[in-house]
Write a protein that binds this DNA or RNA. Sequence first.
RNA 1: GGAGAGGUGGCUGAGUGGUCGAAAGCGGCACCCUGCUAAGGUGUUAUCUAGGAAACUGGAUCGAGGGUUCGAAUCCCUCCCUCUCCGCCA
Length: 414
Amino acid sequence: MLDIKFIKENKDLVQKNNQSRGVKVDIDQLLDVYEERNVLLKKVEEKRSLRKQESKTKPSPEIIAKMKMLGEELKTIEEELKDKEQELNLLLWQIPNINMPDVPLGGEENTKVEKTIGKIPSFDFPVQHHADLGQNLDLIDLEQGAVVSGARFWYLKNELVELQFALMQFVWSKLIKKGFKPLAVPHLVKEEAMFGTGFFPAEKNEIYNVNQEEDNLYLIGTAEVPLISFHAGQTLDLKEAKKYFAFTPAYRREAGSYGKDTKGILRGHQFDKIEMVIFCRPEESQKYHQEILSIEEEIWQELKIPYQVVNIASGDLGAPAAKKYDIEAWLPAQNTYREVTSCSNTTDFQSRRLQIKYEQDNKKELVHTLNGTGMAFGRALIAVMENYQNAKGEIEVPKVLQKYLSFKKIKKEK
RNA sequence: GGAGAGGUGGCUGAGUGGUCGAAAGCGGCACCCUGCUAAGGUGUUAUCUAGGAAACUGGAUCGAGGGUUCGAAUCCCUCCCUCUCCGCCA
């Protein structure tokens, strides 16, 4: 979230920024509420001060009577203050991060293609959709997934599972080489972690709530949540930035996407993913954003799959992100690029909520946090399947993955 | 799941209703001493927040949130977490 003082001093900027993201919070109202809250706070503090002075020693009966009255007044004002702070927070929590200067303004249609890498392949045979390849080669079982868990769940089978494991090792070893430290993280988190990373309140309906009555935990929609929360409440030594990654499933309700991408495994309630995060000093976050992007690009380049990098427009940014790049890989069967990774600079939006700081000239300052997809395996599998299919309806194994596998092609006969 | 114990400052640990933001020790910092020398002495040393140029002043914080009380680290309730024993278990 933003610093209320920053909002006060940069009213117009915040207002414009909100507009660019389609967020309708009345900043004047917010600042009014803030002022009202400050007045109440001052009153409360004055009365508390009085009470404190009289409570140093045992007071006389008259003073006790007086203090009793003061206590009543205090209680009333404290109640008002609490309501006012609640009102303030509800407004404040809706305000998204400030766009970086080079974020394209507008909605999805204004997403800017930064670069296009790789030549779109031309096939001299009819290309198959990954769902058909999966069916023909006995790699995906959507029907039984639906029987067991419902729509948008599936089983991966045979070589496809091995292929995913090969991709995992490929990305894993690369991130280790790049200085990222692996973490095995909780997949169920408390509300505070969801709020702190900025997924609540905005995206609450995307998240599974487990055992609300007894445990009230939330299934992670991305490892970003436990990874960033790993340092919640801590003051870090940031002489060097901290880099982590984790391999986890991502659980998503996909509440708003009924009827969208229903064929195959492009959009599901659960997919495996490697996520990376970085904690760094504010002046370094733009540099590390580029670094994360370049690692993601390297992965797709080595897989030899065409992709484009897009700079997400303001209206499409999640609340915590100041800037976001997606990589979209070419999917031949859909004849288009589709999102396969996403990396964001969330500046101090998350660290302010989670109170993640570092020490600078004997003062504690908020860190900047970044996150990026190492690999979303569901979509990576789709990209490999569709781009590496051949005329015989087989799937060839990308060169960089071959050392992890005992086969070079996925064929029909097992 | 059952039975218990507990969460206090950077650390150890005292504090069961008022003068407690909190003894003592350790650690840190500053100065002094310099034939007890990998030592001694003196002083100082929590965090957040509002105002202020600063000195300073106010408020909050003893796991979190409520409650009782004129007054809560201390009493009551709920929650979170840690530990011990039993049970179960990959």
